[in-house]
Structure formats: structure tokens, C-alpha cells
Simulated scan of single mutants.
Amino acid sequence: MTTMIEAEGLSKAFRIAKRRPGLLGGIRSIVDPEVRTVAAVQDLTLQVQQGEMIGLVGPNGAGKSTTIKMLTGILMPSAGRLRVAGLLPIRQRRELAGCIGVVFGQRTQLWWDLPLRDSLQLLRHLYRVPEQRHQQNLNHLRKMLDLDEFIDTPVRQLSLGQRMRGDLVAALLHEPALLYLDEPTIGLDVVAKARIREFLLSLNAERGTTVLITTHDMDDIETLCPRMLIVDHGRKLYDGTVDAIRERFGGQRILVAVLEPSEVATLAKLPRDEAGLPVLTDLPADVYVQKLEGPRLELRFGGAAPPAHELVAWLGARYRLRDVTFMEPEIEDVIRRIYEKNLLLAEDNIAV
């Protein structure tokens, strides 16, 4: 499998000048400023294989955008080694531009006063895409993103969702192997977000395009990215699957069991606790009754409880079940909990 991104010890620091207090009347000197160094990215090691979809997550100022800019060749790293698509981003920026596509949610590469069609035609010349290949790609992307209703409309008159679809086409017309998306669904409504996510999943499945997404929208991560990278203050805190981090740091889960109607009478005969909930005998460790409404029984269980399938078997041996589902903790709540309690730092960084 081809390695699309290979970073080792990648760091980026910025020098920021701050004026010193002057000698006369508090005038601040601009001749001899105080200079301090701020580390935006620190010792980042990362490997991304062809066809992966990865979410880059972190609070504002965590180093996400700086990382993207180094990966695209916009910024030169202060330290470390970096290859993208087998190329050195700074030294081989022109060659790299033909291998990558970039979409920034709050910026556009389309011409404001031109119809969308004309912007896409200009980009064909910038990327030197042959006419036939350009037309084939445009026809395919127009169909996937349903552009026909506004392709002749000036970009300034497009809605945010329409412009984002146009930007995606602009980034993909030259068939890049690697697509960077920086907040691709910011400000979009639910319908527009769903359309963008569906398109990205299809793109990855059909063309094997590698996708790296930075976002604050955890629904993007859950829908699109099996793998997640968490950064904070420029450091990598976690690199692994979404499911693994939810299981480890998600707190307690909920088992929702719908019992056969005949079992409701059986539950009604059980003694109740102070909250009015039925007291089930010999409950496994770290398992608690959370709610009972008619035939619907909810059990809350944590990390010390038996595996989910054993808990279902335990319940099924005592009551006749019509349906069983599990309610997973929201990944947004998991990430918030990690930051609030510094859980990953306390765990000595569990990156894999």
C-alpha cells in the first residue's frame, strides 16, 4: 500500500515580536522589540496510507491549520522530515500541486464575479488538464454533486452550500490522489452537510482518494473517518480509531432492551429502589437500571461490566426479549471530556 503522508518529528515554531516599553513617556520601542517563540506544532509523527479517511481534531489554536499548511507546502517546517505523495512539499511544490486538492471552508478558489462554469474552466488551464480529461471529470462531478441547477450562476450569487460543492469540484478536477478539507461543512445546513458527506464517501470508495479532514463538527468525524488524530497545543495526543477512543474514554453505555409484553407484569412485581426503579437481582458488576417504561428497559454499564454480548445473554436468560440495541456516547462528548480532564495526558499518550 502506498504511503501518502509520512511525517517524522514535524515541528513548526513562529517568532512573534512584542514591543518593549520605551524610556520616554511610555513610548514603545519598535527598534528593539522583545521576540518570543511560539510552538504551533511539536514533534508530530504521522503516516497516512492511500485510501484512508482521517479526521484531524483539536480546539482552536491546536495546530491543525498549521499542520495542513506544512503538508501542502505553504509553510516550511522548523524541524522534522516530511514527504507527501513521495514528494518534498517545500522543494517540489509545483509537482505536489498536481497530486493534492485543498478546500478551505471559509475561503474559495473560485472567481467571485464569474459563473461557476468559467471558474472551473480557468482552473483547467492552471492545472494544465487536457480538455477531454477535464470534460470527463466535470461531467462526473456535476452529476455526483448536482451542479447543473447553478453551474452558470456567478459565484457571488451562490448559497454557502452551493459554493462548497463548487469548491469541491474545483479541488478534484485534476484527479488528486490526496484531498485536504479544512472545515468543509462549516456553516452548512443539515441537508447540505449530508450531501457533502455522501459525496466524500462515494469519492473515497470509487476513486480511492485519500482524505484528511480538519473539523469541529464531530458528526463529520463519525460519518466519514474510521481513524482520528487528536492534537492540542501542537502535540499529538491520540492516533487511532473512533471506536477505540469512545470505548476507552466514553464513560458509560446504555443497553436498551424491549421485553415481550408478558414480562411487564413480572417486572411490576419486583421491589423498587428510592428512585422507583425495579431492583434486579444478581446484576453484573458496574451495571445499573437506568429507566423502565412499559416493556422498555434501559441498563447503564461501564468499563468494569461484562462484554456487551455477555450482558445481553445474561438479560435474555431471565426475560424474553423482543429487541436489543445499544446507545453509544456521542463522540463530541467524549472529546470534550478528554480535554476537560486531560485524560490522554494522564494516560501517557495512548497513540497507536
Rank of each mutant, 00 (worst) to 15 (best):
V57M: 03
T2D: 15
G86C: 07
Y127W: 08
Q121T: 12
K69Q: 12
G105K: 01
M164K: 07
T72G: 04
E293T: 15
V129D: 12
I68S: 01
E131V: 13
E175Y: 05
F150R: 04
E131P: 05
T214L: 08
T2W: 10
P329Y: 13
L123P: 01
I90G: 00
V334L: 12
F199E: 11
V312K: 01
G61M: 09
V31E: 06
L280K: 02
Q157T: 12
G61R: 09
Q121P: 03
L56W: 00
W112I: 03
L172H: 08
V129L: 15
K341M: 11
R20E: 02
L343E: 13
L122C: 06
H125K: 11
T241I: 09
L88V: 06
E330C: 11
T266I: 07
E332T: 11
H174Y: 10
G166T: 06
S29L: 00
L126S: 07
E260L: 14
G51M: 05
A79K: 12
L10K: 03
A192V: 00
N139C: 14
V84N: 05
D219A: 15
A85S: 13
P278R: 04
L122V: 08
G250Y: 10
Q47K: 13
P77S: 03
E328Q: 15
L56H: 01
L224G: 08
T266H: 09
A79Q: 14
G250E: 05
D152K: 12
T72E: 03
Q47H: 09
E8P: 01
V129E: 10
I151H: 02
Y288A: 15
A97G: 02
G9S: 04
M228F: 01
A275K: 10
E298R: 13
R19S: 09
R246N: 14
S11I: 08
G63C: 05
E175L: 08
E131L: 13
L46E: 08
V129Q: 13
R336C: 08
L201I: 11
A305N: 08
T209P: 13
